[in-house]
Design a protein around this nucleic acid. Structure first.
Lengths: 195, 195
DNA sequence: TTTGATTTTGAGCGACCGTTCAAGTTAAAA
DNA sequence: TTTTAACTTGAACGGTCGCTCAAAATCAAA
């Protein structure tokens, strides 16, 4: 090798991801990206192939980041439900102050893409399904440790959690709702426990 | 007046609305609209001023249509909660077969628009708040008739309903989830009643 | 110090965007 | 039948889009 790349790949992906997360895929222009990540078209296309390629890396990075957030919240709590609660509060209260959107980037992706963008539609769906599968194993564990009843199957709990979480984030995306976050999260877990 | 317009305004707004609902505002081009509503640019701009103007009419029409759907479901049931259940099933099961998206058009709008489109952001938010206000009066009535307890205030019930409804629609937007709709709706109202 | 593969730069391509407007068409009024 | 204001048409404008590529810059190896 006679010349090394001058940019930090992970950092570029994260910065681009923030922009994509905020504005959506279609509303983010390649000029926006050029400014945000301080790279010229040639370099971007050499490194990522296309705007779509960069977006794919960014959304995969987002999913990985979320999973790590959840894992570290679980590590800090004995109880799985406590860990999940801490995770939700971290994402919706602490991180929310500087996050580009209250909405989950995967959900935003699923909302934006139609059959016109089959690759991105498939990818965002895959990542959401992976997250659901991970949640399912969590609720299985919670049922084994008797934290949670067996009225619902683990996958049903996982579905219910996602519905609540997504609905809540969508509501908190409205202006002047941030003050309600804490109480609504408690209400969410109350309703999960007493299902 | 020496010459009348040749298009049916309401029908044009509804058709355009279906396209906007499906693809979002930014991803719907004026050429898409021209084809869908069979009008040439000059006529569209004479009638609606701009793409944004047509979108405003379309989203207001959507909100009105939803309110009418809810009102007619309420008329067909003694109980308010039964009426709400029928409304949700109508929207998520019956209408879903030919609707352009599982998601609420207002929610999609709120998700898409940033500070770059302040007019549309404000409008979609206004319409969502109006719907919340209407829901609140419904839950007040339900509390007066003892259908519902007073553990939560009416506006808290309205918020919870919207969170559930939005979260559910987002989940049902994923592929191969339609079969789950009926059970998840029952679960939703169960959790509202036992809050 | 020279070489040369690799990376970066940025002008610019063709396509499509939202929108305009002069010209053509229409039909009620004169 | 002629007039004329309202409506429709569609070519085309300036701007932005995603993306390309020839030229310049870079730096490890020779």
């Amino acid at each position: 090798m006679v010349n090394k790349v001058k940019f930090e790949r992970d950092e570029v992906i994260r910065t681009a991801g923030q922009l994509f997360w905020q504005k959506g895929f279609n509303a983010t222009s390649t000029r926006d990206l050029q400014n945000a990540i301080n790279m010229r078209p040639g370099s971007i296309y050499a490194a990522f192939g296309s705007k779509e390629g960069l977006y794919c890396e960014a959304i995969k990075d987002y999913a990985l980041f979320m999973q790590n957030q959840l894992l570290s919240a679980l590590n800090e709590h004995e109880s799985i439900l406590d860990g999940l609660t801490a995770f939700v509060k971290k994402v919706l209260i602490e991180d929310a102050e500087c996050a580009p959107s209250m909405l989950c980037m995967l959900v935003k992706a699923n909302n934006e893409f139609t059959e016109d963008e089959p690759t991105l539609k498939l990818l965002s769906n895959d990542l959401a399904n992976q997250f659901e599968a991970f949640l399912t194993t969590l609720f299985e564990k919670a049922q084994h440790t008797k934290e949670l009843g067996t009225k619902l199957t683990a996958v049903e709990y996982a579905r219910y959690f996602q519905i609540q979480f997504t609905g809540l984030r969508s509501y908190l995306n409205r202006p002047n709702t941030q003050a309600l976050a804490d109480a609504l999260i408690d209400q969410m877990f109350l309703s999960i426990k007493q299902l």
